[in-house]
Design a protein around this nucleic acid. Structure first.
Lengths: 322, 322
DNA sequence: CGGGGAAATGCTCAATCGGAGTATAACATG
DNA sequence: CATGTTATACTCCGATTGAGCATTTCCCCG
């Protein structure tokens, strides 16, 4: 939370002892463009959009929407709360400043608004290159992460060694098997603990080896981003939220690519279509897209009626675990 | 949040304009005793344990644990964050008081501590009698809730009528079918909206009929409880959290009764056992329980190793949706 | 000591689901 | 018109799930 927070400059409330109490709102704002998962950032990609929760805001979610629209010019669609933090070590420097950070996940259609600070879209795999398994397990896991985590495990005493090795194997999977895309947060936390990300070095933790590739962020924003990714990866499996990221009409392959972008893994094409159709989530628009490179594809739109019919019921995706 | 909040009496922080900013911690603390799901309450069953987040607390979760242990004498096991609220209308009376409420779900073994205020355990179906479908759909749904919701739907204009009827049918299921135990929160909110719970009357909402049976709570504590129930009902299906509520050794039927108590519905006995065994979640202690009323049952214990082996992987329960 | 009641426990069966593969159709391009 | 590329339609099989039947092993009661 160093300095550059957007806001009105209104002084933060302080209690009699001079200690500050304040609430910050932080957004993990996600979009998908052409098969790339993007996250909205500020300050040159080093921070997530955020701002203080102020008295004028009717509710937390209204406050968040206000900030995001002010800072990015984007109207926010789907929004859900992620997590609330207040650990003392989140208060950089000023030991007396106590900040509660309430983070949110928001989904947007990127094309919608190329507004004010909207230059901040970044591929989220820039921050988590080890999370992209769409073309198989990334080489950097075997080349950089696995050896470093091995070293980290060996660093531990007799007792901790096996435990660390086990955690590493669980989080990153053994030889490509057992990878669970929903554990994005656990993986980041493991790397942090092992001192393999820049934030750990910044916070003065010892490193078990050379830093792993991947952009860092200020404060614990990268951890919050990992939380958002994990939540979204879990959510797309049982709620029709992907459609919040799609244009009004799309082909099934485009839809599939979006799912894959978020999940970080490929899915079986035919099974994907089967599920989409048998669940009645989409309907044909009647038009076709001819720029597919092959046979023209039918264009579909989301059947908004399903939100009503099944309330908030299910989307199934061929992403289930064995 | 009227008056009776536990705390040190330390004045709440205020900003220059005299507006207060503070954070409250609220716990939905759950246990299961003899097949009954219980929730810890204070003030004669009208409130959930809560207290201000103070500067001395290292983190939100530490603060929560401190309050719960102070107020109930119970050591808290599993804890997870539920939701953070800050709507202006949560600030009763004093329009200038702005409170952020961070709610948590906690699981406890009831027998563990019959400590200080530990008289506060209540069957949670006292608050949500319509949520207990263990012996089939409760009569009060057909007798009281359905007619009242019908009336509420008819109250709406031409457009809203179908919408309301649809929401009611979705939330409560049509003729016993389509009931989804995870929608406890949506059901409560629907009843609130229709003015059928005491809290709605208290908040000045018009009623669509006579109040539905079920104990009320102060402020929005009953809503928070519903949030906790819904979360727990969802969670037991994919995480081995039920065991946090069980004694060290238990029979499979006891385990099943606990699951049923939480889920509010019965499960197929043989299939339940099949799942428990094939997942290696439990192991035999070697002893048997002879007070079963029939053939003695083997006693089992939770295999704590699974938490390590499968990290935070799965429990399957025969509670899946059709 | 011989039922009868109550669970515990073991086993079967059919329907469905989920993963994976094969085959065919319809376009663009050279 | 051959070729590459994608869309789309079917098929297959193993695993999972919901549901029920059958058998076993206790206690209690007369």
């Amino acid at each position: 939370m160093t300095g550059a927070r957007a806001g009105t400059g209104e002084p933060r409330p302080r209690d009699e002892a001079g200690r500050a109490v304040a609430a910050d709102l932080i957004a993990v704002l996600v979009a998908v463009t052409g098969g790339a998962p993007r996250v909205m950032t500020v300050r040159g990609g080093t921070g997530l959009p955020s701002g203080p929760f102020e008295h004028r805001h009717r509710s937390l979610q209204f406050g968040l929407r206000a900030w995001v629209e002010e800072q990015t010019g984007l109207p926010l669609g789907y929004v859900e709360q992620l997590y609330t933090f207040a650990d003392r070590d989140r208060t950089t420097g000023d030991d007396e400043l106590r900040v509660i950070s309430i983070s949110y996940l928001g989904l947007a259609r990127e094309e919608a608004g190329a507004g004010a600070g909207a230059d901040g879209w970044r591929d989220w795999y820039d921050y988590f290159p080890w999370e992209d398994h769409r073309a198989g397990a990334p080489a950097l896991i075997a080349e950089a992460i696995a050896p470093a985590l091995d070293a980290w495990a060996k660093d531990a005493g007799r007792a901790g060694r096996a435990e660390r090795a086990r955690r590493a194997a669980l989080a990153f999977g053994r030889d490509g098997d057992g990878w669970n895309e929903e554990w994005a947060l656990q993986r980041y936390e493991l790397l942090y603990e092992a001192g393999l990300v820049a934030e750990a070095a910044r916070d003065g933790r010892p490193a078990a080896g050379p830093l792993v590739p991947g952009r860092a962020m200020e404060s614990d924003h990268r951890r919050i981003l990992a939380t958002g990714i994990a939540r979204l990866r879990a959510k797309i499996k049982y709620r029709p939220v992907v459609f919040e990221l799609m244009p009004p009409a799309f082909t099934l392959l485009q839809l599939q690519r979006s799912v894959e972008a978020l999940a970080g893994r490929g899915v079986h094409k035919q099974n994907f279509r089967r599920l989409m159709e048998q669940q009645d989530l989409v309907e044909e628009t009647g038009a076709t897209a001819t720029d597919t490179g092959g046979r023209p594809a039918k264009l579909f739109r989301f059947r908004h009626a399903v939100l009503a019919e099944r309330a908030v019921a299910g989307t199934k995706l061929p992403l289930a675990r064995g």
